[in-house]
Nucleic acid binder design. Structure first.
Lengths: 189, 189
DNA sequence: CCGCTAAACGGAGGGTACTCCACTCTCGTG
DNA sequence: CACGAGAGTGGAGTACCCTCCGTTTAGCGG
C-alpha cells in the first residue's frame, strides 16, 4: 500500500490525490479542532475510501500536506551553518524544528510515526530530516564543539520527544529549555 | 468532574470503581491489542457511562490501573540514592522509568497527559514523579555532579519525551542512548 | 477504434469512543 | 423508620474512523 513514486498513478487518481491535498491544506489552516476525514473528503469532492487509499492515516496526510514546509526547514540548515558556528546553527535549527512541529496540529504525532521508517509514507520526511541533522552534526564534529558518538537518528528521536512532550502552545518555554538541555548533552567534553 | 478524594463516593459507586479497576488490570495484562472500553465495562459488570464517569479518558484509566507500579517506581528513588552516587542513582531511576512507561500499553500517553497537570486525574502521578525526581536532583546538586538550574518538571517532560519517541519494543537501545544523552546534559560543568 | 483488464471509485456498514437523559438507589435528616 | 434529594446508573444514540465489495473508468494492446 505504498503509493508514492512506485508506479505512476492514473490521471484521475493523480487528480484526486492533488485535490485531497489541497483540501487538507485549506482545512488544516482553519482555526479550531482538526477536520474530520469525512469533511476533508467532501471538501476534496472524493469518497472516504479514496481519501484512505491515498493517505492511510491522519499522520500520513499531515506529513504530505506540510511537505513544502518540511523542505524549507531542511533547506535552512546550510544557511544556518554559513552564518555562524555549527553548535549555534544546530540550536537555531532545533528551534525551527519546534516551530514546524508545533505550528500545525498533528505534526508531532506524524514525526513519531516517521521515527519508525518501516512505514514508507514517511521515508521522505525522515530522510530529509536526517540529512539536515547530518550536515549540522558533521560540521559540529569537525569544529570540535559537538560529540562524535551521537547519530542523527538519535537526535531526531530526541527532538521528536521534545515536540511530543512539550509541544503545546503554553509549553514553548519548557520546550526551549529542553532543547538547551539536549544541546548541552550533545556538546563535546 | 474530579472524583478523586474530593467527596466520598457512595458505597455502590465505590464498589463499581473498584470493579472497573480490577477488570482493567486483568484485561490490560492480557496479550494482544488494548481492550475496548466496552469490553472493560462488561468485564466489570457496569455500564459504559459508569466507566467514563470514573475514568474520562483511556489515559486516566491506565494511570489508575498502574498506580501501584508508579508507587514502586517512585519509592525506589531513596534506595537508589542510598546505594550509590546521585548521578548513577538518577540514571538507574530513569531506566526504571522507561521500564514503567514501556511495559504497559498506553502508559507513555498517560504521562503525556500528566505533564499538563491541569487535568486533575493525573495530579497524583505527577506529584509523585516530581517528588522522586526532586530527591534525585537535590542529591546530585549537593554532591556537585548535577546542575542546579534544571527543574524536576523539565526532567519529567524530557523523560516522557524519550518514552513517547522511543518507547517501542524494538527501540530500547535507542531509548537508553537518549537517557544517557539527557544525563550528559544534566551534568554539572 | 474497440475490447479488456485491472486500477480506482464511493457509499454502506461495522467498530469504538463518547454523551444524553429517564430511571434507580443511597444516604442524610426529621 | 420513612422520605426526599441528588448521586449514580446504563442502554441507546451520535460522531468519527476505517474497510468491504459491487461498480466505474482509464489506459493499453490489437
Amino acid at each position: 500500500m505504498t503509493r508514492q513514486a512506485e508506479r505512476p498513478l492514473r490521471a484521475d487518481a493523480r487528480r484526486n490525490r492533488d485535490r485531497i491535498l489541497a483540501a487538507a491544506v485549506r482545512l488544516f489552516a482553519e482555526p479550531g479542532p482538526a477536520p474530520t476525514f469525512d469533511r476533508i473528503a467532501k471538501e476534496a469532492g472524493v469518497g472516504i475510501a479514496t481519501l484512505y487509499r491515498n493517505f492511510p492515516t491522519r499522520e500520513a496526510l499531515v506529513e504530505a500536506a506540510y511537505r513544502s514546509e518540511l523542505v524549507k526547514l531542511c533547506d535552512a540548515a546550510p544557511g544556518l551553518l554559513a552564518s555562524g558556528p555549527a553548535r549555534a546553527a544546530l540550536r537555531a535549527w532545533t528551534g525551527r524544528f519546534l516551530d514546524y512541529t508545533t505550528a500545525k496540529a498533528g505534526m508531532a504525532d506524524a514525526l513519531r510515526a516517521a521515527i519508525d521508517s518501516g512505514r514508507n509514507p514517511y521515508a521522505h520526511s525522515r530522510e530529509a530530516m536526517l540529512a539536515a541533522l547530518t550536515s549540522l552534526l558533521t560540521a559540529g564534529r569537525a569544529d570540535g564543539t559537538l560529540r562524535a558518538d551521537v547519530t542523527p537518528e538519535d537526535v531526531f528521536a530526541a527532538l521528536t520527544g521534545v515536540a511530543l512532550a512539550a509541544g503545546g502552545p503554553d509549553q514553548r518555554e519548557q520546550a526551549e529549555r529542553l532543547l538547551d538541555l539536549l544541546l548541552d548533552g550533545l556538546a563535546a567534553d
